[in-house]
Amino acid sequence: MSKATTPAVAVVLSFAAGATDAFAFLQLGGIFTANMTGNLILVGLYQRPNYLTTLIGASVAVVAFALVTYLGFRVRNARVLLVVATVVQALVLAGYAVADRPLGRLWLCVFIALSAVAMACQTVIGRTIEARSGVTTTFVTGTLTSLMQSLANGRTEFRTVRILSILALVAGALVGALAITGDPLLGAALPLVPSVVALALLPGVSVPSA
């Protein structure tokens, strides 16, 4: 895989994660499907309105994400994982387009699980192809920490991809929120765009184990 290609893929996947989390949080009961740290915090917020729905949704997301992440690191084929993520995002879009709204708890869980599967696949890809830079495409705490550590140590390598990944995540969330304001279906469709772009950028090769 070209060293010039992997940072671009990581940035595109960061945008996808921001857009996906915007859709999930705003349309799937306030649950994250890319940021599992957020879901673990939500599990503890028992005073939140509709806590049972939050507890179930957050638990579904964490379990689906963890299981598929484990399987993804065993597969280690970036293109296969990205195809799976893209297909699953398409299923979310198709299902959301035909489902009655507001969504019932069962449909919420189905869409949360599917979205978490897509984000798990993208996480494995991003974590592995950018292992040296410390870029994590579905959450930015690790990326931000790596950036600040390198700056504190006077090192500049990987600075660009780290900064762009953080900005792309925010941009994805912003564009996703704007799309949902226009039409919630657009919010479901948006994550497909960066997934397809990443497929075009990603060579059909296996990712080496970390």
Rank of each mutant, 00 (worst) to 15 (best):
G172D: 04
T156E: 13
V11D: 05
V88F: 13
V88A: 02
S14Y: 10
N39M: 12
R159C: 05
V110Y: 04
G30D: 09
T137W: 06
V68H: 04
L174M: 15
A22E: 05
V80Q: 11
A118L: 00
Y46D: 11
N77F: 13
A116F: 01
F73L: 05
A61W: 13
T37N: 03
L81Q: 07
A188V: 05
A131G: 00
V170A: 14
T5W: 08
R101D: 05
S195H: 15
V161K: 02
G142A: 06
A97N: 00
A19W: 11
V124Y: 06
D183R: 08
P208K: 08
R76P: 00
T128F: 02
V124W: 03
A171H: 10
L185G: 07
L151G: 01
A171W: 06
T181N: 12
L190E: 08
S115N: 14
L103Y: 11
T6I: 09
R76A: 14
A90T: 13
L192G: 12
Y70Q: 06
A24I: 09
T137S: 07
A94P: 08
Y51D: 13
L82A: 01
T160G: 06
G18P: 11
A97C: 07
T123H: 05
V205T: 14
R101Y: 10
Q47V: 09
T86R: 00
M119F: 11
A189Y: 04
M36P: 03
L185C: 11
S165K: 11
T181I: 10
L199N: 08
T145W: 02
L103R: 12
A168G: 12
V84M: 13
V205P: 00
G182T: 09
M36R: 03
L144D: 02
G44I: 10
L45G: 01
